[in-house]
Design a protein around this nucleic acid. Structure first.
Lengths: 239, 239
DNA sequence: CAGAATCCCATTCGATACTG
DNA sequence: CAGTATCGAATGGGATTCTG
């Protein structure tokens, strides 16, 4: 145990490639070992809606350093959660992309979302990346409200475009160009969208203030808002 | 930031009672802040089937030190995930117990289970606490297989007793005395149970070896085994 | 821009020892 | 039994710098 580290740096796959290990057959412990490391699950979150570049990831993970991001990407790659990929020649940039298994981490991630939002310590006023916002939509989506609804909702947040496609009581979210949607919400930050979708604040208030624009079939707005619901607060009030 | 620590130990509830903070409105980030700390989610796991004592927790979390367990219990309590409770006079011992919100962490926990088990790095030969075994049952339970089944399955592992109650296509697990069940599996460790329930190894093999005993209506064993299924392996093989 | 390499402090972990 | 106290070692991770 006190060997001056010899054959421990060579293999990026040993029992624990970063030194800790629960020694527990519980698969949750293994998952925690991989996703529970600081920043790891948030990196996965940022990749959940498609491949991203290093600097793009860094921009949406406020506070992460280049070093730590590099380390996490390496570790996650060694565990098979993501891979490094070179885009074909015209672009020729390098991106990080979740593996099939990595994409399946959406379920634990959304459950963490739903659990965390029940805490009274949750503060929606903090910064929220476009990807995190779109994933929160999936977390707070109430299938029952969408049984006979079929529509495409566009979102443009901080210049990034997404489409939420509602059909057969379920909803997918993907990156997509504007114009594909029946109704589109445009905002510079996530906050006004949080306010109207989850806080159920009147849309007009934010449209007037210029914080939020709605284009397309605006009559669908109320139905869209009805698709989402936040769980009740249960955590400790503040102490 | 360099103050000789004055008003920092007093409040166990500051913005971040242990110093790190993602500064992210994403509720998953908050959940990670609380449950993503080393050992935290495993402590919650051990409490998931009912209140436990300090030494009992420690015994089932191989490798945790008293110091770290104490710290985690404090932090989790300050976040409202668990509470410290004194049992009524006859017993008068102190136990830790999840709050309502704490119990709701079962969903993220089970999703982590289901995700982690898809890794080829998952090693079922490692130690598994009785509680972790019982929760794995809930994680691997396939509702479809139990539609018209109604029975109570008893488990005795390492001297601890549990009952899995199957009805209406769902299954609850709780601590319970032997004799409440239609069929009971008894084993000293979790391994033989993992082998027959998930590995679909023949029951007889372990009964003969004395690693596993079945009492009650043994004809139900096959049906019980059919209730559970492991997801396919997807993670990196080993490198 | 995408990292790799350094530096360095603060935190944290785990082992051991101690206590009501 | 249920923790507390202390200590040394390891690690984490922020900032900065350098490079292809």
């Amino acid at each position: 145990m006190k060997l001056p580290k010899e054959t421990e740096e060579e293999n990026g796959l040993a029992p624990a490639s970063h030194g800790r290990w629960y020694g527990d057959a519980c698969s949750a412990a293994l998952a925690l070992e991989i996703l529970g490391e600081r920043w790891a699950m948030l990196v996965v979150r940022e990749l959940m809606l498609g491949p991203r570049r290093f600097s793009s990831l860094r921009a949406d993970l406020p506070g992460i350093s280049a070093k730590v991001l590099t380390q996490r990407l390496e570790t996650l790659q060694s565990h098979g959660v993501l891979r490094r990929r070179k885009l074909p020649p015209p672009a020729a940039v390098q991106v990080y992309e979740l593996t099939e298994w990595g994409y399946l981490a959406e379920r634990p991630l959304l459950e963490m979302c739903r659990w965390g939002v029940m805490s009274r310590a949750h503060d929606p006023a903090l910064a929220l990346s476009p990807t995190a916002l779109m994933l929160s939509l999936r977390a707070m989506f109430v299938p029952g409200q969408a049984q006979d609804l079929s529509l495409r909702v566009g979102f443009e947040v901080h210049g990034e475009h997404f489409v939420a496609q509602v059909a057969n009581g379920s909803m997918q979210v993907r990156r997509g160009e504007p114009g594909e949607a029946d109704i589109t919400f445009t905002a510079a930050t996530a906050q006004p969208l949080l306010a109207i979708l989850y806080g159920k604040r009147p849309l007009a208030e934010f449209e007037r203030g210029g914080a939020l624009a709605v284009t397309g079939d605006a009559s669908l707005a109320e139905q869209v808002i009805g698709l989402f619901e936040m769980p009740p607060k249960l955590g400790t009030p503040a102490a």
